[in-house]
Design a protein around this nucleic acid. Structure first.
Length: 814
RNA sequence: GCCGAAGUGGCGGAAUGGCAGACGCACAUGACUCAAAAUCAUGCGCCCUCAAAGCGUGUCGGUUCGAGUCCGACCUUCGGCACCA
């Protein structure tokens, strides 16, 4: 029977019956935790991206299984989130109903992929059994002081009177009604990830992660060393601090700038400037952060009428507000040094503020203003003549003596805002009591169930606030009537700990068993898209550390090794999307070719890490490859017992060489997710088998059979159903996945003679067969004695001869 | 604007500083066939009628006996973003 979807079904059924892929906890000492980022259950069927991520990760996991590891490869769904809620608003179908239905469809399709997921360990983040423990996690962070409340702005659409996600704001307008979006302050929950900024930075070094991802996290955390300097307001006891990395330029400060949102602004603005300041603040509320951070935009800002006193010169400097200063970074206040900062320079020119040079470039350096490099101080009182490096310390030392400044390390990383004014998420397990204040829900009362019957159409309030049954409760402390927190948790909270729950998903007593988790984790190989390089991966690392410090586990990092698969784009080179109409449905290909051919094609047609535009030009070749293997298996069965030749002649040696080469490089390349070259090496082996069959009459059948068996073993992770079928055809009863992964014989890779290249002055001039046993000196002699080489060297002087073993000889002549 | 990554045949893509183009696709030719498909075999970077020679990894320089690979500048494309003081 030629390979088809029917073979897929046959083996899927067999695997299920024999529980082939069941994880055995008792073999945890050989464990390998292979995890793919779980997916969001969207309405559409599995797309090529799922196959690319899950299918090929599964191939890697299967290889590891054959190599003797006890592979733990679970699967689940990140099921809360905005799309289901939006879909519900549009269609009236309840998020829970649509989500559960989508999960069912995706589970079926994932099973059809033939991946080795152990479904006994499935987690679904929107099920109460799961979010009970998400809520527990929140309470743990609350207990340890890592969850706190503060005011923070949200995107607000005045027309829909609703909070919008950044994604729902298009060019500053609401995606639904096109009204101009503004900002509104709400009291919201935060996780104190900044407590872990330094550890999150330090521990990156030991991780087997792509350098690019480490760089992204490093930049995201954004450590910078500088100083905090205090400025006092003129004739007032109000003061404020600025953060600067360039304390050496302090004497060049000619004005200071506050973020418009800074709470000081209202207190210091003088009556005559009040109106202008208010107008400007309203204007800034309508800007997105990206807009505020655009360098091409003209500088804007207004004077507050207030003056600050320079901490050293005691000169009075104007206090301005401008959108280029962010409330969320540093102290929300900036000292402006227009001579030595490009933004300040531009701003000063715009508003005619003074510019004072205090740094001169070293000799020969162009120090035209704005001069932003380090140099030597001038016009800086007793600091003149110091280098920038010296001055930035000395100046802070002097300030510190007067309690006016200190050295300080600042991080760009902000605390994680976890409150969402949404329905489809885990309710925040907090009760607000008039007499007791903020009261955590006692653990015994978890989960705080998300009510089903809720009006979640946007009308200005958190949807849960409108459910009386949900909101009204009693205070666990004093027993008086109290209200629940109406917000839900960011879905990133759900996904920041799911890899822990997988390990112990049926535990009703706790989120997970500490002892067990310490054995099965950390995750050995984590595979997912690069778009999660900053947020998800950082959040998960943070939660792991927070739980460690709370005593719930004892490892530092959740994911030891990380791989990002590339993105498969539409054939037009654009990201696949329904609206562009460039999506590719795997189902059609699977119906036509079978899932293994599709998987192999994904393995062969792309560089896994890079991805690329979809094209099905090569998929027929994969089908051909598979049928060539089936034919050689048939051929072998036909030949069996007919011939007897135990000789290892030249043809046999060549076949054995290609066979061992294939074993070596499939093993090495697949290990590092280089699946395209792995498949190429298998193709070379099948080509060699055909060559041998076509050209050698009296075959060494033992070698022929062993080579074919090895090829099928190598192929098994990539074409699991087909390989099982072939294995059975060869007469084996046990599953091929219980067979050991082949090991190459280094001796078989040593050839009698090798062809090396001959270069003269680096230019290729010819090739020559030489015995592989010859040492460098012998190789040089052989080459120099070659008549053609002699001809080349006629009348030239040989300067030196470079021999690169097994590769080439380069003769340098004059 | 800043940061990061990448530019290799008609196409997907290979190449520890050491013979560029593995393995495929497409194409061409041949065998088989009444014919086509399938299959098998051979060829296939550019220039050139052929051969030889030459030219070839975005562009220009550099390091090196030797550069797709390392260094510098530039161009283009794709990702990420934070005017980060």
């Amino acid at each position: 029977m030629p390979y088809s979807k029917d073979i897929d079904r046959k083996w899927q059924k067999r695997w299920e019956e024999t529980k082939l892929y069941k994880f055995h906890p008792e073999k945890v000492d050989k464990k390998l935790y292979c995890l793919e980022m779980f997916s969001y259950p969207s309405g559409a069927k599995l797309h090529v991206g799922h196959w690319y991520n899950f299918g090929l990760s599964d191939s890697w996991a299967r290889m590891k299984r054959m190599q003797g590891y006890e592979v733990f490869q679970p699967m689940g769904f990140d099921a809360f989130g905005l799309p289901a809620e939006n879909y519900a608003i549009k269609t009236g179908i309840h998020p829970q109903d649509s989500t559960m239905k989508n999960i069912e469809t995706m589970e079926t399709q994932l099973r059809e992929m033939g991946a080795t997921f152990d479904w006994d360990y499935e987690v679904v983040t929107c099920s109460p059994e799961y979010y009970k423990w998400t809520q527990w996690l929140f309470l743990e962070l609350y207990k340890t002081g890592l969850a706190y409340r503060k005011e923070a702005p949200v995107n607000w659409c005045p027309k829909c009177s609703t909070v919008l996600a950044n994604e729902q704001v298009q060019d500053g307008k609401c995606e639904r009604c096109d009204a101009e979006v503004t900002k509104r302050n709400l009291t919201q929950w935060f996780f104190k990830i900044t407590n872990y900024a330094q550890e999150l930075l330090d521990k990156l070094e030991g991780l087997d992660w792509p350098e690019k991802t480490k760089k992204i996290q490093t930049n995201w955390i954004g450590r910078s060393e500088g100083a905090e300097i205090e400025f006092k307001l003129e004739s007032s006891d109000i003061s404020f601090k600025v953060f600067t990395t360039r304390a050496d330029t302090l004497l060049g400060v000619t004005y200071v700038v506050l973020a418009p949102e800074n709470e000081l602004v209202d207190r210091i603005t003088t009556p005559e400037y009040k109106k202008a300041v208010e107008v400007y603040k309203e204007h800034v509320k309508k800007e997105t952060e990206i807009e505020r951070l655009s360098t091409t935009k003209e500088k804007t800002g207004v004077f507050t009428g207030a003056y600050a006193v320079h901490p050293i010169t005691k000169e009075r400097v104007q206090v301005w507000i401008s959108d280029y200063v962010l409330a969320s970074y540093g102290t929300g206040c900036v000292m402006a040094v227009p001579a030595h900062d490009e933004r300040d320079f531009e701003f000063a020119q715009m508003f005619n503020l003074p510019i004072k040079r205090v740094i001169k470039g070293l000799k020969g350096v162009d120090d035209k203003l704005p001069f932003v490099d380090y140099g030597v101080l001038v016009d800086s009182e007793e600091f003149s003549g110091l280098t920038s490096e010296e001055a930035r310390i000395k100046i802070v030392e002097k300030l510190a003596a007067g309690n006016m400044g200190e050295l300080k390390i600042n991080y760009r990383l902000r605390d994680w805002l976890v409150s969402r004014q949404r329905y489809w998420g885990a309710p925040i397990p907090i009760i607000h009591c008039e007499s007791c204040g903020v009261v955590p829900v006692p653990e015994r009362d978890l989960p705080v169930l998300l009510p089903y019957d809720v009006e979640f159409a946007p009308d200005g309030e958190s949807p849960l606030k409108k459910s009386k049954e949900f909101m009204n409760t009693v205070c666990p402390t004093c027993g008086k009537p109290a209200l629940r927190d109406p917000d839900t948790l960011d879905t990133f909270v759900c996904s920041s700990w799911y890899y822990l729950r997988y390990a112990d998903n049926k535990n009703h007593e706790k989120a997970f068993d500490k002892e067990w988790i310490n054995k099965l984790l950390p995750v050995d190989k984590y595979i997912g898209g690069a778009e999660h390089a900053a947020m998800h991966l950082l959040y998960a690392r943070f939660i792991t550390k927070a739980l460690r410090d709370a005593g719930h586990l004892s490892f530092d990092e959740p994911f030891l090794s990380l791989v990002h698969q590339g993105t498969i784009l539409g054939s037009d080179g654009e990201k696949m999307s329904k609206s562009k109409g460039n999506t590719v449905s795997p189902d059609e290909y699977i119906d036509e070719y079978g899932s293994d051919v599709f998987r192999c094609y994904l393995a062969f047609g792309f560089n896994y890490i890079e991805g690329g535009p979809w094209s099905d030009d090569g998929i027929k070749a994969m089908s051909r490859f598979v049928s060539r293997i089936e034919k050689i298996v048939d051929r072998l069965k036909e030949l069996r017992d007919k011939q007897e030749n135990k000789e290892m002649g030249a043809a046999e040696k060549e076949l054995n060489y290609v066979r061992n080469l294939a074993i070596k490089y499939v093993t090495k390349d697949a290990e590092i997710f280089q699946f395209n070259t792995s498949v190429a090496k298998m193709m070379e082996l099948i080509n060699a088998l055909y060559d041998y069959d076509n050209n050698v009459k009296d075959k060494n059948l033992e070698l022929f059979e062993d080579s074919i068996a090895d090829l099928i073993k190598l192929l098994a992770p990539f074409a699991p159903h087909f390989a099982e079928e072939m294995w059975e055809k060869l007469g084996y009863n046990d599953s091929i996945f219980n067979v050991e992964w082949p090991v190459w014989d280094e001796k078989a890779l040593v050839k009698d003679t090798i062809e090396i290249a001959i270069q003269v002055n680096g230019k290729l001039k010819g090739r020559k067969e030489i015995p592989s046993t010859a040492d460098d000196k012998a190789v040089e002699e052989l080459v120099m004695a070659d008549p053609e080489v002699k001809e080349y060297l006629e009348g030239k002087q040989v300067v030196k001869v470079i021999v690169i073993k097994n590769r080439l000889v380069n003769i340098v002549v004059k």
